[in-house]
Design a protein around this nucleic acid. Sequence first.
DNA 1: CCCGTGATTTAT
DNA 2: TAAATCACGGGG
Length: 175
Amino acid sequence: MAKGLLGRRLVHFVGGQRLSGLIVETEAYLGLKDPACHSYHGKITARTKTFYLPGGHAYVYMIYGMHYCFNVVTRSEKHPEAVLIRALVPEEGIEFMKRNRPNARGEKDLCSGPGKLCQALGIDRSLNEADLEGDRIFIEKGIRVPAGKILSTPRIGVDYAGEAARWPLRFSLED
DNA sequence: CCCGTGATTTAT
DNA sequence: TAAATCACGGGG
């Protein structure tokens, strides 16, 4: 799923305005057996209960008291797995995104990080548990991605997870 | 490299 | 109720 989401278009409607970008970086979080995952060992808290929804829902949480992260829940109650969306190439609503991120240095800085893309697209906790087959936020077909263009590297910011921090579960589109 | 930041989780 | 933690970003 993390590889398959590369090249697809994430769309968020706000005030009748389409904000979108192509997904170019993701990370897989493998549920019960993944020490880096919020649902490791089946942990359930007020925050992580979203993980246990059926695939196709949004898991949005706040980190460091200031940033949101947007994830796609990918499986089922028995298999609480998700994909973190880490970067987009902005497509529609770029002027709107610039207003959402007044400090951005340029277009490339708009969605080049999990917190940045949430700020640019106006994604916040109100979208937690959102149905991705609804009409507020959803994912479109996007562009074709040749398998040879996908890079696999270790996930970012999960050093607390020991050996799992080195698992090559971060995927990005070359170039 | 360092550090702000405060919601969320965990320890007491 | 208090303390620790943290899927990050921004500025040096």
